[in-house]
Write a protein that binds this DNA or RNA. Structure first.
Lengths: 102, 102
DNA sequence: CGCTGGTATCAGCAGGCAATGATGTGAAAG
DNA sequence: CTTTCACATCATTGCCTGCTGATACCAGCG
């Protein structure tokens, strides 16, 4: 069966700020303070987005004293990559698969 | 430099109906009538989403008499796949790259 | 031609979600 | 023990966007 991509996961990554966070976390593990500095967003706003990313399984939290470090879960991104690759391959092979006009 | 994923493109694919359309088009080239049947959405709604997908460069239109066929552009999906793969790889190698607490 | 059917565009409405401010919690520093 | 700082949660507001109905456009067909 054609494994469709999870809409919720893409929706989560569709927000520009969240995508920026993910891009930053792809470089290094950061805590909220760093993310506030890098993105310029308010702490509350960041915390909201981090909650969304956490519940979507994109990031993991790692408490360190008073700080909370966030790190990416690469397997989620890798899974997305595979799903898109599968879609692309399917689209390639089905390019001439045209259903007749009704 | 780390080529970040295009937020607009992901946002476009983040809508459940649009993702369903893309999944359907990955199997075969279809015209609006078919998509209306498959998705159960109104024609107007479909047409709006097709416009978004077209402007995002995800699909191509191919007029055929009174009908308009839509087909996917696999290279866009393949590009997305590569970008996510790059992010995942970067995240893997940067897992231990932890910035110091301020 | 005029008619019919397929498709695109436009205007309006309603729901959802992101941004903000106030507040709570928990851990170190003094 | 009190204060301070990092972070999370809650409630509110405002905007964005997806859905709908009406309408215009274009291609065949009679």
């Amino acid at each position: 069966m054609l494994t469709s991509v999870d809409p919720d996961l893409i929706r989560v990554l569709g927000d520009p700020l969240r995508l920026q966070i993910v891009t930053l976390l792809a470089r290094e593990t950061l805590c909220t303070t760093h993310l506030v500095e890098e993105t310029g967003a308010k702490q509350t706003n960041l915390s909201n987005h981090m909650k969304v990313l956490r519940e979507a399984g994109v990031v993991e939290t790692e408490p360190c004293g008073r700080f909370t470090y966030y790190k990416l879960r690469p397997e989620v991104l890798a899974g997305l990559s595979e799903q898109f690759a599968a879609l692309a391959e399917s689209a390639c092979s089905a390019a001439e698969n045209k259903r007749a006009c009704p």
